Amino acid sequence: MKEKFLGGLLVFLGACSFGVLSSIVKTAYKAGYSLGEVTGVQCFLGMLILWIIHLIVKTFLKPKSTATTTHNPKTNRLKVCAVGIFPGLVGICYYQCVQLVPASIAIILLMQYLWISIIIDYVIFKNKPTTTQILTVITIIGGSCLAAGLFNQDIRLNLTGCFFGFLAALMYSLFISTSSNIGNELPKLEKSALMITGACIITFIIFPPLFFFKLNLNDQLYQLGFLLALLGTVLPPFLFSVGIPKIGISLSAILSAAELPVAVTCSYFYLKESVYFNQWIGVIIILLSIALSNLKHLKRNK
Rank of each mutant, 00 (worst) to 15 (best):
L114K: 11
V283F: 03
K296Q: 04
Y95S: 06
Y268N: 14
G143S: 03
F269E: 10
V283S: 08
L167S: 12
G143K: 02
V123E: 05
S293G: 04
K74M: 14
I120G: 00
P261H: 08
S256T: 11
G8S: 07
V80E: 00
N301K: 14
F18D: 05
I155Q: 06
L13A: 15
K62G: 01
A229T: 07
F12P: 01
L288M: 13
V20A: 10
T139W: 07
P129W: 01
I176P: 03
K299L: 13
V137S: 10
D154N: 10
K272M: 14
L110V: 02
G40T: 00
I108F: 05
L45E: 10
S179A: 04
L61N: 12
K214V: 15
V25M: 04
N184Q: 14
T160N: 12
G149Y: 04
I49F: 12
L89W: 12
F166I: 15
P236Q: 05
P73R: 03
L6V: 13
S256P: 04
L271W: 07
E259C: 01
D121T: 07
S173C: 01
I247W: 02
L231I: 10
F12W: 09
I92H: 03
L189R: 01
T160L: 14
G19Q: 03
Y95F: 14
V80L: 00
W51D: 02
T68M: 09
Y95Q: 11
C145V: 14
I107G: 15
T131K: 15
S256L: 01
A28N: 02
Q133L: 05
I24F: 10
F12Q: 08
V275N: 10
P187C: 06
L194R: 05
